[in-house]
């Protein structure tokens, strides 16, 4: 279940946007210009079901996203989707993993408090007995130069 973001959760001045996901559902998101720097040495790890519903998160995921573990488990991974991320990036992600391949890219994620953080993300299908039973996503600290390239590129993909 994904619900609209609430003004009382937001820290600082915010803007509103409505995101429409690939399944036609939409969500009102509230976002600010406050960046949380990616901590050195940590990995954010999560797994999802084949439908992209979060089934496991590690502590770094909880810390960086601002959501509690209970809020994350059972939510679609798109709970982190930031309005500055072009839909084309996620289409490429899904097209790639559905072919059974590994996807890698730079992603601006939305926090519960409306802030954001950049990650270098890698997603792979979890194949068990020849069947895809879910996906594992690992995020690590991106280089500033790659983030700057994405800041210039992503607005051109809308």
């Amino acid at each position: 279940m994904i619900v609209d973001m609430k003004p009382e959760d937001i820290v600082g001045e915010y803007r509103e946007a409505t995101l429409t996901y690939y399944d036609g559902k939409s969500r009102k998101v509230l976002y600010t210009e406050l960046e949380t720097p990616y901590p050195d040495g940590k990995l954010i790890v999560s797994t999802t079901t084949p439908d992209g519903v979060i089934s496991h998160v590690n502590r770094a995921f909880v810390e960086m996203s601002g959501y509690s573990e209970a809020e994350l488990l059972g939510a679609p991974h798109s709970i982190l989707r930031h309005p500055d991320m072009p839909a084309a990036a996620f289409k490429d992600l899904w097209d790639t993993v559905l072919r059974g391949e590994k996807w890698q890219g730079f992603v601006k994620n939305l926090r519960k408090d409306g802030g954001y953080y950049w990650v270098k993300a890698t997603v792979i299908p979890n194949v068990r007995g020849g069947k895809v039973v879910g996906y594992t996503s690992v995020r690590r600290k991106p280089s500033r130069s790659k983030v700057d390239e994405c800041i210039a590129l992503y607005p051109t993909l809308f």
Partner: peptide
């Protein structure tokens, strides 16, 4: 077994 598979998947994501 699943714990090991999970770690192998993780190593796979990191090894790129």
């Amino acid at each position: 077994d699943e714990e090991m598979e999970f770690m192998i998947d993780l190593m796979d994501t990191l090894n790129t």
